[in-house]
Simulated scan of single mutants.
Amino acid sequence: LLQPYAAEMLIPALKEVVDLPIHLHTHDTSSMQAATLLKAIEADVDIVDACLSSMSGLTSQPNLNSMIAIMQGQPREQKYNLASLNQYANYWEDAREIYYPFESGLKAGTAEVYEHEIPGGQYSNLRPQAIALGLEHKFEEVKKNYSVVNKMFGDIVKVTPSSKVVGDMAIFMTSNGLSEADVMEQGATLAFPDSVIDLFKGNLGQTNDGFPEALSKLILKGDKPFTDAPNAHLAPIDFDTEFAAFQQAFDDE
C-alpha cells in the first residue's frame, strides 16, 4: 500500500527516530512498486526486497532484474550479473507453469488494492478460499466486504494473522448475505468465525485505541476481552523438556 511519494516522506521520518536499518518489503499488486522502491532508495532506505523476474509482480514482490537495470549508474548501485539472473529467470519461467493452478488469478496490476487493501500475500490465498466455499462468482463482493470489514474493525494493520481475520469475516458476510447494518442489527444471534472472536478477545494483541466497542460486545457476547499481552495467558513451557519429548516422539528410527 506504500506509494512512491509516501515512501519518500516515510523513510527519512523513520530514520529520525529509529537507529535500526530500515528494511522495505512490499508486494506489487498495483504494478507500481518499483517506483516506490526507487523513491525509498533515493531516501536512503537500507534494504529493499525484490523477486527474480519470472516469479515477480502482482501479488509477489517487484521485479529484481528490472530493479537492477533501473539502478545501473545510480550512486547506490549494487553490482549484479544481470545476464546470469536473466538465465535463471528463463528457467523458473518454465518451472512456474507446473504451479499454474495455484496462481492468484490476476492478469494485470490493479490500483484496486488501494480500495480493498488486501495484502499481496493474502490475495493468492483468499481467492482459493472463496472458491472452496463456492463463492468464486462472488469474489468481487468478497473484496468489497474486505474493505467494509476493515473499517468495521477500526482500520487495523493487516498482516498475518490479522489480515486473515478480516478475510474470514468478509467471506462470512458474503456467504450469509450480510451487510454491515445486518451485522450490527443481528450480531447478538450470529455465530461469528472463531478467528474473529479470537481477535476481539485480545488473543492477537491490542490496537492502539482498542476495537470498536459496539461490535466487540456483539462478537464476544458478554465475554470480557484481555487488555494485556496475549502471551500473559499462556502456560509456561520448559523448552528442554518439550524438545526431549519431541525427539522421542519423532525419532529417526
Rank of each mutant, 00 (worst) to 15 (best):
Y114G: 09
I219H: 02
N125W: 13
V17L: 10
P62S: 07
K15A: 13
N81A: 05
E115D: 14
R127K: 15
A6L: 10
S175R: 15
F246H: 14
A69D: 06
N90V: 14
G187N: 07
P225N: 08
D44L: 03
H23Y: 15
D19P: 03
N65G: 04
E213H: 02
V149S: 02
A83W: 00
A7C: 12
A235W: 08
E213V: 06
Q3H: 03
F226S: 05
M173T: 03
G167T: 07
S195K: 01
A7N: 04
D28C: 08
M184K: 11
P75M: 00
L20Y: 05
E42Y: 09
Q78K: 12
K221T: 06
N208D: 09
P4M: 09
D182M: 12
G109C: 07
V165H: 04
E8M: 11
G57H: 04
A232M: 13
G120Y: 05
L218W: 04
T207P: 00
M55G: 00
S84I: 10
S195R: 02
N231A: 12
Y123C: 09
K158T: 15
M67I: 12
M67L: 15
P21K: 01
L220T: 13
N208K: 12
F250L: 14
K224G: 01
D44K: 11
I237G: 02
I118F: 05
P236S: 09
G73H: 01
Y99S: 14
Y80M: 11
M173P: 08
L135V: 05
L20C: 08
E242F: 09
S104G: 10
P21W: 00
I156N: 00
I171F: 05
G73E: 05
A181W: 07
G120N: 07
G57F: 02
F200I: 05
L215Q: 02
P4F: 06
F239W: 15
T26D: 01
N145D: 11
N125L: 15
D194Y: 10
A188C: 06
A188I: 13
